[in-house]
Amino acid sequence: MLENVKRTRLDQALDAVNTAVLIIVILLIAYPLLFVVIASLSDPVAIYNDPLRLWPAKVNFESYKAVFDNKDIWQGFFNSILYTTIGTLVNIVMTTLAAYPLSRRDFYGKSAFTFYFVFTMFFSGGLIPSYLINKQLHLLDTFWVMVLPMAMSVYNAVIMRTYFQTNIPQELEESAHVDGCNDFQILYKIVLPLSVPIIAVLVLFYGVGHWNSYFHALVYLQTRDQFPLQLILREILVQNQFKDMVGATMVDERFSERMAVMEGIKYAVVIVSSLPLLVIYPMMSRFFKKGILIGSLKG
């Protein structure tokens, strides 16, 4: 990139092509999301018969009403919020506890601990042994199986450690030490307040991970009341199962119309389930670049 130089004809042509192609690519990436928004606000039958629209057809909120009337979705939403908040809290605490000592130059045994953590990134027991161990711990089908087995990720701990090392002056910690702070007080009173950007990024990464995961719950949970939203979504979106949902909205109509209403509910449920992310995403996006930049600097 050069900003203030005379561009040749070729350069100008390239810039024009680049801008045009980029706009098309971005529209292609955005279209599926846009389509769901449009479809969810449309009359289900109209969108079912003609999905190629750039504006909602006969705007109505019937699909949303059907979603909000459904007990399973509320329960799932509530469960997911619980798993996500508690899970993320545990993640942040554990990641900090691992990252801080590793960031200290005078921590004796640092490389041994690092190896102990990093080794698990490259070699793991796999699904079945983990399953058997959670079973042996009597965690199957409990709240804690959604939190404890994923208490932290090594990758994020490495990101955090690198942040501590590069963004917090060593002198600050040393002078606090001289003033009589112990290691825990240094972490709590000096390091953490200076680490808001990295904590924000990790909250986003961990939080999105908890909110979005379905496979873990699929393996470890059996009671329907405990299902996170993603498992309920799986039934609706992929397996086409609507418990008491269609009966409530449709009484005596033809099959294809009933199908159309089901599809309308699917669009609305996608939007509703993504709402928390839509709220958090813009708030966090200013931290992204920083977070990923730190992540790419391996230590």
Partner: peptide, 9 residues
């Protein structure tokens, strides 16, 4: 940031 399930849908 979309979940696998929603993406599948």
């Amino acid at each position: 940031f979309i979940s696998v399930v929603v993406a599948g849908g």
